[in-house]
Amino acid sequence: MEFIKITDVEKTYPSGVTALYGLNLNIKKGDFAFIIGASGSGKSTLIKMLYREERPTKGEIIIGGVNVGKLKNRKTYKLRRKIGVVFQDFKLLPRLTVYENVAFVLEMFGYDKTEIRAKTLKALDLVGLKEKVKSYPDQLSGGEQQRVAIARAIVNAPKLLICDEPTGNLDPDTSLEIMKVLEVINNLGTTVIVVTHDRDIVNKMKKRVILLDKGKLKKDFEKGTYDKNEKC
């Protein structure tokens, strides 16, 4: 059974721009996949549709049995609670500590205090930030901030972790560290999808690579590398 099943998806924005044409894609449970492509290739649109920030114009996207495109705005949160999302700009709340930035997600869902503490510390431990729980985001390096964001994304044990250019703002060494963290999370059973521009990382990780070009699927290979001849 496929975990994510994308069938004949087309996305046209109200402005008339079509970002994706007739996309077909399956991702298995426990996969680690890179989505790569040049700017304007439709990769951002694709993952935005995965966490239901956008809806497909045609076709359907099924995640874990749920037709994501048909989800009403009011019900979107039900999907998002099962998906973790990490962004290029971290999106941390500056006035909360590291611990609070992760714990507030669980607070909103109504967990009790001991449960929150256990889960939050476990997630922060996994990303290697247990020592910095009391720091504020602006006291951390970029890599550390991104690790807080990852901890927040995985704290509720999601089935799927989506990362939108997670290393876009980081130097190569730190980027690789982040990738190692994502790999650990993947090994624990979470499906991970990473959108990236970063050639080196894709080549080093040797995971599945999905290449989009001008809104179409161009290549999809297991244990792939960034082909130097591809224009990305």
């Binding site: 966490y51 920030e53 009011r74 039900k78 999907l79 999302v85 999106k91 941390l92 909103m108």
Partner: peptide, 16 residues
């Protein structure tokens, strides 16, 4: 706005 956006992205319902 950003706070609201982040809350929405991590799965907060409109009510919460």
């Amino acid at each position: 706005q950003e706070e609201i956006e982040i809350k929405r992205l991590v799965g907060a319902s409109n009510t919460s």
